[in-house]
Structure formats: structure tokens, C-alpha cells
Nucleic acid binder design. Sequence first.
DNA 1: TGGGCAAGTGAGCACAATGCTCACTTGAGG
DNA 2: CCTCAAGTGAGCATTGTGCTCACTTGCCCA
Lengths: 173, 173
Amino acid sequence: MSTVNSGPRVDATDARILLALADDPRATVLALAERLRLSRNTVQARLAKLDENGALGSFERRVDPGALGYPLTAFVTAQADQHHLAEVADRLKDIPEIVEVFGLSGPTDLLVRVVAADTEDLYRVAGKILDCPGIERTNTALAMRELVPHRLTELLRRSAATRPAPTGRRARD
Amino acid sequence: MSTVNSGPRVDATDARILLALADDPRATVLALAERLRLSRNTVQARLAKLDENGALGSFERRVDPGALGYPLTAFVTAQADQHHLAEVADRLKDIPEIVEVFGLSGPTDLLVRVVAADTEDLYRVAGKILDCPGIERTNTALAMRELVPHRLTELLRRSAATRPAPTGRRARD
DNA sequence: TGGGCAAGTGAGCACAATGCTCACTTGAGG
DNA sequence: CCTCAAGTGAGCATTGTGCTCACTTGCCCA
């Protein structure tokens, strides 16, 4: 349901931690600290804060639908009765194959991301979407290729590059 | 670049592990084992296999762009010279604000997911996309609301529900 | 110019988790 | 009937965790 989160912004050090984690997701705090040349204490505190503020989304994001038996991804755009968007969203939430829904600006009201086991399955799901009261028109496009797989690394690198406020870190080494 | 992965399919037990992990991402293997009433050994082996086969996507997926200073998400659809899709994709990859790109079936060739710091930033990024040689026409829609946040839980639950092949597990307890 | 303040550091400590290996069990399939 | 794949429980040396503490350092602000 939420749109933004905008807790306190991730700073350069946080970004470096996230980057290191991206490289090795199950790395121990100790390993991260060593690698980033920070104290274990710092990394631990930072990490704690990062998932307190919702800077880290849910873990499910990391699960590959393909491995779950849903190798097909499709995007269904829809026009809907704008007065009842919330109700429509609730209905859509009940369809398990629907993985993500956005409310859009412009002539297309909804963008629905769907996964499916095969084309027949996809057809069925598309039908279910159209059947939702409030949905007026849909259009389904199959994702044939993932040309750029989901990534935030470039943005993280940019954040990591800004010189951190150098506080209390040791001079030697 | 990859489209599918389709390593060996995730079975019911795997799904249960992933579900538990979704609930508590940094849970220790021991905690998971206890909670699922599996042996530590099993969980450890399963988890190892899960990220060997790419059933687990990269960690970056969990990072919230909002926390990074990019609270805006937009979807840019584009028509492109289909003979040069690969080159276009390479160009798009160089734009950091581009988070994901799909090649679609139908009249729209590309779906580009973009994040931006503000509307002006978005305008700039949209311009960069249009400037890519091979891109013929674009249309930008701002994601105003995340009506259903990314989730795979329902699907995971479905997988977890199928009775697992009950092998060698103890009778008592 | 001096005092807080926030953030980092290094040390230490009891406890828990990891990574490994081994012998054993169990159901499925040839 | 035998073998195989998967799970189990045990054990053990090594690491990592979660916590607290005293101390340092640069920044902000008065």
C-alpha cells in the first residue's frame, strides 16, 4: 500500500555496506567490517538501523519466480474506474500470480506485473484481472526478455562515492 | 541478460525455508531449522543449494530506491528498432537510474523501469532514453502509488502447501 | 574557545551459531 | 532385495554475535 518510505537517507557508508552485501548476501557482520575497514561495531549498528527504517525491502524480492515454477512474466496494463481504485487493488491482491501493481499517471491507470506457469496459465490470470469489478479494459504484454535485470548497484556506487563525513575513524593504518 | 534460470525446481520444503526467511531475513540457520522442525543439517544443505542454483536473485533487489534518494518510480515504454535491441539495451544499461528493462511482445518493444530524485530528474532521464540510437518513440508514466508491493508470498505458500516427499524424517516428536 | 553531541573505535566476554564429518534411518525405485 | 537420495542427530573446533564500556574525533553551536 505504501508509496514512499523516506526514512533518514542512506549515506555513503551505508551504501558501501549494502554494496558489500550485494556481493555476498550472507556475509557475516565481521566479514563486512573487515572488508570495508570499519569496526565491527559500526557495521552492526548501521545494519540494525538499515532494516529498522525500511531501507531494506522484504526478502521475497530476492526469490526468483522461475525457480518457483512460474517462468513467464507479463505486464498487464489496465484502465479502471478511478473512484474505486482501492477496491480494485484489494481484488487484485487476492490473485496470487499478481506480483506487483502500480497506479500510474496518464491514460493507463494500472500496471500489473504477473507471473505464470505457461501461456495458458497467463491467459487464465489475465481473465481474472479483467473480471475484477472496476476494471474496464486490459492489455497484456509478455516479457520476452529481461534486457536489464533488476539492479541498483550503479546508484549504490554513486552514493558510496560521495566522501563520507569522516568522524572519529582512526588515522593510522 | 538472462531470461529464465530454471534450475531444479523449488520444492515444498524449500518454499517453507524461503517463507521463514521472508519473515526474518537475517535468521540464523539454526533458528530456521528449529522453527520449521527440520534438522539444522537439512536447512543448511537446502540453503546452500538454493543460492547455488540461482533461485535467489541478487541482494540489491531488497534495497529501497527511496532510501537512496530516488523516491520517484516511473515506467517508460518505448518503441525501438527491433534489429538493434541488444545495442539499445547496452546503451540503456549505462544509465544508472534505469533499474530494469524488459523486451515485450506487442506494439511496445521495451518497458523501462526508472527511478529519479524528482520530476526534473525524471525528465532528464527520459530524455537520455529517447536519445539512445535505436529508440524511436517513448512514453513516460509516473508510478503514483504502489498498490500491491512486490510479493511472492502467496506463490510461496502455494508451493509450501504441497505435501513434501516425506523421506527419513523421524516419526516421534 | 570551549562544550556538547553524534559517530566511530577497540577491547572484552559469555553464549550461540557455523561448518564440517560421521553413522544411522527411511521411503522410493529399480 | 538392494541401492540411492534425503533426512537425522551427534559431536567438535572455530567463528560470529550481542552486548557493554571507555575512549577518540570532528562538527555544530553558543
